[in-house]
């Protein structure tokens, strides 16, 4: 192994931890803990972005890091948490049968993303090229979270997790998107979280639950 700088080692360490939070999200069943984990993922992502900024001398990445910290580690989790309290879902747990298989599937997705990214890694000369596979894995794990869970709040967390992965991919593969795009995406995510809140309230009013499986049933068929 070629000796690499301490900061690069730290970036890899943090990237591995971000991946771990994605796995933990898949294993977590309690709503409040799920949102807290999501906040941790945002915070770790912000620290990683700041470190990438430090290593690659890209001052505008500091702004991205700050934006990530404010939005994904503080504001959106706080908003989701408030929503969960308002809907009285704090102690809600999801029934996870066969979750071991889901976690093994998640590991398989990680291997798959490594396989997909391999040609890019060989061509790239960036310091962070090894982390690209991790960022793709985070996107896929977010998608898996949306697929395997039935509660609307968890699916929203999965969606935000995918967004985290995309942002991470942008940071590590091209050192961030242009500031205009980044601001636009951040604003979109913020608006999305508010829209999701409205959607939750309506969902509960109309079907008395946040279990989206029940949307498949027609009211007439029940009666």
């Amino acid at each position: 192994m070629v000796a690499v700088g301490l900061y690069t080692q730290a970036i890899r360490m943090l990237a591995a931890l971000v991946l771990f939070t994605s796995f933990a999200l898949l294993a977590q069943t309690r709503m409040a803990a799920l949102i807290r984990l999501f906040a941790w993922q945002g915070a770790l992502l912000a620290v990683t972005t700041a470190l990438v900024a430090l290593v690659t001398h890209q001052p505008r990445l500091y702004l991205s890091a700050l934006l990530t910290l404010g939005l994904k580690a503080l504001l959106i989790p706080w908003f989701l948490n408030r929503l969960v309290i308002r809907l009285e879902l704090q102690h809600e747990t999801e029934d996870l049968r066969g979750n071991a298989m889901v976690l093994l599937g998640a590991a398989a997705l990680t291997v798959f993303s490594y396989y997909v990214v391999m040609p890019i890694v060989e061509l790239s000369t960036l310091v962070t090229r090894n982390v690209i596979a991790v960022s793709l894995a985070i996107v896929l794990l977010g998608m898996l979270l949306i697929i395997v869970r039935r509660k609307a709040v968890t699916q929203v967390v999965g969606f935000m997790c995918m967004e985290n992965g995309l942002f991470f991919a942008a940071v590590v593969s091209t050192y961030g998107m242009p500031m205009v795009v980044e601001l636009g995406v951040a604003f979109d995510v913020l608006v999305a979280s508010i829209l999701f809140g409205v959607f939750f309230l309506h969902l509960r009013d109309s079907i008395d639950s946040l279990d989206v499986d029940r949307l498949n049933r027609l009211r007439e068929a029940d009666e």
Binding site: R12, A16, L19, F20, T110, N130, V131
Partner: peptide, 17 residues
């Protein structure tokens, strides 16, 4: 899972640098 993640992160992040 933790041990598997360890193995995966070794392969993804530490090999072929």
């Amino acid at each position: 899972l933790l041990c598997l993640l360890g193995l995966l992160s070794h392969i993804i992040l530490e090999v072929g640098i």
